[in-house]
Nucleic acid binder design. Structure first.
Lengths: 338, 338
DNA sequence: TTGAAAGCGCTAACAC
DNA sequence: GTGTTAGCGCTTTCAA
């Protein structure tokens, strides 16, 4: 294994000079620099990143921790978009991304602590889940670096990148009302996913109903855990209790797919106006006729990546960021009254 | 920062003993071990993984290199399944997974070399792509560790986990013929993706046609690059040239989605019998009526993870592994003759 | 079963 | 602009 010393010897300079060429070459005379570069080339020298990490006390790695098992991370399309956003940002600024997806929530949180305390990573991005507030306390007590994908405890002011769904659901509901729909279902996100539920989807929905002079009926709202299966089941419940339903707004794209499948199975094609939850590329391709709330998952992941890198580099907390949803009209359904 | 020395001091033992407790505690007297563990607990000590890595010359990390940009890795569902399989295996045996997805192929391959030579990772999993054979030569010359997800050069005997699609396409074609289909299209995988094309999908298809006494018409086969867009375009080409087409076999699930969308756009719903390419969970949910070739992507990723870990631990090459496709009948279409 | 000392390959402090 | 020295935190001889 060739080391920096071999390079120094061949180039006839000190080890520190080689190190300078590697890291801060502007502090080295051009002629010296060239000699060192030649030696590096000749020896096919590659600096040992681990040794540098040890000395610098910097792993140059970011952990992306998801407390729902690998089948969730790698199969939920929103999660993938977040992951992709984080990957793109952090890899562009010289960090590597480590994905950690233990099967049990409590393992995940311990894993976050372990990764960070072991100095395997310089900081982590945490997905909201039950118990994450405890972990954050420990991160804060130990002065470790973290960013959360959503608000994780009451009064959290720093180190989060969240998405506010109020505008999206408000606009979606308004739009459906403008088409003449009166019985509009909402397949809401799960309260249990988040420590601090912002009720944003629900609030946008209720506000729009109120403005439209339509009564808010709580049983038109069902929670689901973002999955296809929940979309399927909850829509069936909804339509059974409210056979006069003509439209439904879904909190996520997988739930949208489940809803569409349920509609097909029930022989209700073209009878229910569906609004999708995320506006993912795949959904636009599969169901180009669907209007959709837009969920900036990629941007959320990207911003979280940017935030954790900044926090690591500057060594201080950063104020939280809120991204907004919008609403895209792509409707090709007829207005249906049943 | 508490170090192993702090623990040693508190426990009244030598650093080496603490190290033993951490790594090979059976070589330590139980009473000593307890004293050390107590000290670790009391100090909330976490071993510095980087220091251990430096000394051991082992990063405990696997690189997963994909030469097609992050939008491909994180959006292609098969890739995700492979990644998930690798993640699950390697994380279970104490390795971390580093995903590397540079935008340009040649960057990707340089990245694979850099990651490995820098000792950022102990080995890499390489996706087949143009030029990967050159990189492999360099890996071999430098005695670096790698596994490829498919055969990447002529006569490659070692260090790969590939999938043979012959059985799947053979069975799918047989089945379609048994239903009475005569004009069967094949949306094939792209030759350009692979250095060494095994023609497996095509061979299974041709063999089954021959056995069924049906002429093989080359223009019924179109290549696509696994994406929705290619499925859409290539199917349109196919049906335009062959209006008497009644069935089509797709090389991947995204291509299947594209084909289904094209069929809908052309007003041919229920007129074309579609066979899906991968049998991914999402496809089963979205289109439960589709028969499908089963592509063991998760298992492929898992086996690749297992292989690279074994190669790293044993320091030698391993014979390649071939996984097989199957065919699942889920048809609810009527048999259609046009 | 335990310990002393050396050193993995690099960079930070401090000279010159 | 360049070099010397020490040391990051661990593990590995080798000896006791």
């Amino acid at each position: 294994m060739t080391t920096l010393y071999d390079v120094a010897k061949l180039a006839g300079v000190s080890p520190k000079t080689v190190s300078r060429v590697l890291n801060e070459s502007h502090l080295v005379a051009e002629e010296t620099r060239q000699r060192v570069l030649n030696a590096i080339e000749k020896l096919d020298y590659h600096p040992n990143a681990i040794a540098a990490s040890l000395k610098r006390n910097r792993a140059n790695k970011i952990g992306f921790i998801v407390p729902y098992g690998s089948d969730f991370v790698f199969q939920d399309p929103n999660m993938m978009e977040q992951l992709r956003g984080t990957h793109d940002y952090v890899s562009a600024v010289g960090f590597e991304l480590i994905v950690s997806a233990p099967l049990h929530k409590k393992d995940a949180l311990q894993e976050a602590l372990r990764l960070t305390k072991n100095r395997n990573v310089d900081g982590v991005i945490l997905y909201p889940s039950y118990g994450v507030d405890q972990i954050i306390k420990e991160f804060q007590a130990k002065n470790l670096r973290y960013v959360t994908l959503g608000i994780c405890y009451d009064q959290q002011k720093n180190n989060f990148v969240e998405v506010d769904q109020t505008p999206g659901s408000y606009l979606a509901t308004k739009y459906l009302i403008s088409l003449g729909h009166q019985r509009i279902g909402l397949l809401n996100k799960p309260y249990s996913f988040f420590m601090v539920n912002r009720d944003d989807l629900l609030n946008g929905y209720i506000t729009a109903l109120k403005e439209g002079g339509i009564e808010y009926i709580p049983s038109l709202v069902r929670e689901g855990n973002f999955t296809f299966e929940d979309g399927y089941e909850k829509f069936k419940e909804l339509i059974e209790e409210h056979p006069d339903l003509t439209a439904v707004i879904c909190a996520s794209d997988p739930m949208t797919y489940g809803t569409i499948r349920a509609i097909a199975d029930l022989g209700l094609n073209n009878k229910i106006h569906v609004v999708a939850g995320d506006n993912l590329p795949l959904t636009q391709k599969l169901f180009p006729q669907l209007s959709s709330i837009t969920n900036p998952s990629y941007e959320q992941g990207r911003q979280a990546g940017k935030m954790i890198v900044t926090i690591i580099n500057e060594g201080r907390e950063l104020p939280g960021v809120t991204l907004n949803t919008e609403f895209v009209i792509r409707n090709m359904h007829p207005v249906v009254k049943r």
